[in-house]
Design a protein around this nucleic acid. Sequence first.
DNA 1: TTACATTACTTTAGGCTGTAAGGAGTCGGC
DNA 2: GCCGACTCCTTACAGCCTAAAGTAATGTAA
Lengths: 261, 261
Amino acid sequence: MVVFAGQGDARRSMELLWGPRVGAPRTGPGPKPGLSVEAIVAAAIEIADADGMGALSMRSVGERLGRTAMALYTYVPGKTELVDLMYDRTLGELPGEFAPDRSWRAVALALADELWDLHLRHPWLLQVSPARPVLGPGEFHVQETLLRVLAETGLPLPRVRWVVSALFNVVRGSVQSAAESRQASRETGQSEEDWWYARSALLGELVPDLPARFPTVSALGADMAAVPAGEPYLEREARLAFEAGLELLLDGVEAAIVRAS
Amino acid sequence: MVVFAGQGDARRSMELLWGPRVGAPRTGPGPKPGLSVEAIVAAAIEIADADGMGALSMRSVGERLGRTAMALYTYVPGKTELVDLMYDRTLGELPGEFAPDRSWRAVALALADELWDLHLRHPWLLQVSPARPVLGPGEFHVQETLLRVLAETGLPLPRVRWVVSALFNVVRGSVQSAAESRQASRETGQSEEDWWYARSALLGELVPDLPARFPTVSALGADMAAVPAGEPYLEREARLAFEAGLELLLDGVEAAIVRAS
DNA sequence: TTACATTACTTTAGGCTGTAAGGAGTCGGC
DNA sequence: GCCGACTCCTTACAGCCTAAAGTAATGTAA
């Protein structure tokens, strides 16, 4: 059962997200803090980057910092908030400025590319499905950048937001395939392609009537089987899907511009 | 640490996904099975539909069927495979046939609509992020239907696949907002809009320079604040983003068709 | 009819998880 | 010097998935 944060907790989370990164040197009684929110978030991101979200626990984060799990609760209300912070800080990595002489389309492509790279660097981002949006500076930063770029299309702002969300979704969706392909081969030793071939064989054996039931899918599968072994086929395919999806979307935006003018 | 299934487990999962729904009446020694894979999957789906993925545990499923958690392991190798089955069976709900006299665009819109509804009926689908694609009949069914519809555009099949994946991503991404909005208000009593207003107030208090730092986002936020209270604003907004994103994509497809011809 | 193999299901247990509660030690201010 | 605030620890609990072993039920073969 998921319990949502109450009013007071909401304030606390927001303060953490927006609060000053370097705390005003606290004055008062008590031992000096040996950790900091930022150090904890950084450690957590390192763990998730290296071993995935499954390896992220309060214990593992504490251990990496030479503390117990409970020590973290002095700085962070709970794991949920920690993950929110990880997410928001990571989004903050995205560049916000682009050469001003480039067309909105070129900038949008460049930005999508950055988003793609960001998700490959931090594949766990895709597993963070915030039950509610994380209203932190990182999220705002990304939104602002994307909105500003696409506002140059001249479309009204609400429509631009729709474009932004579509673009975001296309990027996230397609990068997921690529990230999975990488992570899986890293964790199993077996390349994604080998895995795929093994499954195909199994499928052919267990479901002999597959081509009859799913002719179009099967035709595609045959295409893929023709690719020479050893190629990082799936990751490249994901990249192509990313680029193609983006082009489609931006073509659609151009059509909308023409129609509006 | 995520451990991927080995060779033998792979076979077992595939057999479960594709195996005959009504088992051949097993003959041999031993007590008669009181459960079945399909009954277990159905119970699990009911739990997830009603109380979300967080409420889904081997115990809760077993309990619903009048058994212990361990009883399920006779039928299903583990929770991972159970979730895969839930996912695949649910995708199988999607209709596969559409009136043949409608244009590919109309059918694509209708299909996207079905996909939207499906995800609203089973919001936990969005939380299932298969580390590897679930190669089951449900997944194939959806892919086949989408591919066949969009093959009518005349584009080459590999490009059609990219269109399919873009479309899928747009739908999944936008329905996520709507689903979250619903679920959150159901679980907290507080409507999503109330939550949003509270957060906005907090944001204005904690981050007074927000409009200066994020002017475009703030402008949009102001738009939203102008909406009368009590409106299911966010869910409607998600729906609009869905429709708009879809239109953009399909416009892009049409542009691609023109360019190819 | 009597073993026996096979299967369904339960109980027990172990190693994870997040986090509530309470205690120990450290520091600044009076 | 002491008090109160503060960090960090130990302990503990409830929950999770699932391995292992035990029990009961059933069909087949001797």
